[in-house]
Amino acid sequence: MSSNSELQFDGIYDDLIMDHYRNPRNRNPISKPHIEHSDWNPFCGDEVSVTIGINKYDRISGICVVAEGCSILQASASIMSVLLSDQKIADVLAFFEDFKYMMDTSCLSSSTEVSPEIAALRTIRKYPVRVKCVMLPWVTIRDAVKSYLS
């Protein structure tokens, strides 16, 4: 890929996003998952399915996130799978809330210190219509974990 800095537009397609889009992580099926859930956006047809294996310490031992749709959706799904690997299952909900807050388009400041992956996803707030692409994997996993815990 040509370096995005040459491009004039306010790039959301930076190297990190494009890397996760081209080489999505954690797409291998989990055998005997504890959680299986999928969701889609009826307006654009984007689809996400999540499967999770949980170990005896209540941590995520395996995660598979498959996203069908645009590059932003796929990159977000891949990044999420990396960030949530090994997390305690009960922490996923708090993680979701933090992430949702960081993606809130009404607080555009980037003051909070975040990982480069989250920072890359946050630039997408410049295109509010695309924030839903970022959020779909996260909403899917939140709902999955919520119903598992309840």
């Binding site: 397609y13 749709g69 645009c70 590059s71 932003i72 695309r130 692409c133």
Partner: peptide, 10 residues
């Protein structure tokens, strides 16, 4: 295989 939303945003 470029998704139309990506085309639209650019």
């Amino acid at each position: 295989d470029i998704h139309p939303h990506d085309i639209g945003t650019i």
